[in-house]
Amino acid sequence: MNVTRFGDAPQYFPSEHFLMRCVRLQGHEAGPAQSLWLGVSTIEPGGHTSMSASPVEKHYVVLDGEVCVQTVEGEVALRRFDSCRLAPGARRALHNRGARPAMILLAMPLARPEAL
């Protein structure tokens, strides 16, 4: 078993993430994992990511606050415990347009499906 206490979770610094604090809960520098990694991002008011894509699918769960997920198809506001899945290659941006910080859980595969 690999336990990561939230206060000890290693921070990481993805590009194109603004007014955000990102930590890994499992996988990569947070410990061993075979298929996916988990992270939590705290998004300050006005915080956001740029519109970009990754080659692997992403799953988001809002833990607190409200996060707007923007794609080329439109935008949806996710609130506490709402979730969404983004397909591999889907362009997305996250925004916190609220007055208080929001927290979002991210789950992503460690590798692209053809590499598994």
Rank of each mutant, 00 (worst) to 15 (best):
G47A: 08
G47D: 09
G39T: 02
V23C: 12
L36D: 00
H48Q: 14
V23G: 05
M20P: 01
I43W: 07
G39Y: 01
V40H: 03
G31M: 05
E29W: 01
V40W: 06
Q34S: 14
L38R: 00
T49A: 07
R21L: 12
Q26R: 14
H28P: 00
V23L: 07
V40K: 03
Q34F: 11
H28Y: 14
A33Q: 01
P32K: 10
T42V: 13
G39E: 02
Q26T: 14
P45I: 11
Q26H: 14
C22F: 09
I43F: 08
R21H: 13
G46D: 01
G31K: 06
R24C: 04
E44P: 03
E29M: 13
P45D: 10
V40P: 00
C22W: 00
S41A: 15
R21C: 09
T49H: 08
P32L: 07
I43R: 04
I43D: 08
S41L: 06
G27T: 05
S41K: 04
L25P: 10
C22H: 10
I43H: 08
H28N: 12
R21D: 15
L19N: 11
G27V: 00
V40C: 02
G46L: 00
S41N: 06
M20C: 13
G31N: 07
H28V: 05
G39K: 02
V23T: 15
Q26W: 13
P45L: 12
H48K: 14
G47W: 06
A33P: 02
Q26I: 09
P45A: 08
S35D: 08
T49P: 06
L25E: 09
A30M: 09
T49Y: 07
S35H: 10
C22V: 15
T42M: 07
S35G: 07
E44S: 11
T42I: 09
G46N: 02
H48E: 12
R24L: 15
T49N: 05
R21F: 03
R24D: 12
G47T: 07
T49L: 07
A33M: 05
Q26V: 14
G47E: 10
T42G: 00
L25M: 15
G46H: 01
H48A: 10
G47Y: 06
G47I: 04
A30F: 06
P45K: 10
A30Q: 09
G39P: 03
V40D: 00
H28M: 13
T49D: 06
T42Q: 09
L38Q: 06
Q34P: 00
G46M: 01
M20N: 07
H28E: 13
L19R: 13
W37L: 01
V40R: 01
C22D: 08
E44Q: 15
T49M: 07
V23D: 06
A33C: 05
S41F: 12
R24M: 14
G27P: 03
C22I: 10
S41C: 12
Q26P: 00
M20W: 05
L38T: 02
